[in-house]
Simulated scan of single mutants.
Amino acid sequence: MEISGIFTALIIGLVVGALGRLVLPGRQKIGFWLTLAVGIVAALLGTLVAAALGVADTGGVDWIELLLQVGFAAGGVALVDGIRSRRAISR
């Protein structure tokens, strides 16, 4: 992977992670780096699932792929926030 591909993945991961946080109600107490990591993983998972369903390569914007990515990001943010909250309570 070239440096431009890595940079693009970071930007897309950040956007997808931020969108995932926006669709969740309330405040999530996870930082910038965790949001970025969740967003990158969600973007990759969303792309893989969209490709498996055959909806990844359409003419124009791939709305179904984007919705899958944001859905995975919202689930990932909720999961990470829940795990971090439980750890803080048990301390």
Rank of each mutant, 00 (worst) to 15 (best):
A42I: 13
A42R: 13
A42S: 15
A43V: 05
A43C: 05
A43D: 13
L44K: 04
L44Y: 01
L44T: 06
L44P: 00
L45D: 02
L45Q: 07
G46K: 09
G46P: 03
T47V: 02
L48I: 14
L48F: 05
V49N: 05
V49Y: 02
V49I: 15
A50S: 13
A50D: 05
A50M: 10
A52R: 01
L53N: 01
G54A: 12
G54P: 08
G54R: 08
G54H: 04
G54C: 07
V55D: 01
V55K: 02
V55W: 03
A56V: 03
A56K: 10
A56E: 12
A56P: 00
D57N: 14
G59S: 09
G59M: 05
V61H: 04
V61K: 08
D62Q: 14
W63I: 15
W63R: 10
W63A: 15
W63N: 11
W63F: 13
I64W: 09
E65Y: 00
E65D: 04
L67C: 11
L67D: 03
L68Q: 08
L68E: 07
L68G: 02
L68H: 06
Q69I: 02
G71A: 14
G71W: 02
F72Y: 13
A73Q: 07
A73S: 10
A74P: 08
G75I: 13
G75W: 02
G76E: 07
A78P: 00
A78R: 11
L79F: 12
L79H: 02
V80H: 02
V80T: 09
I83L: 13
I83M: 08
I83P: 00
R84M: 06
R84I: 05
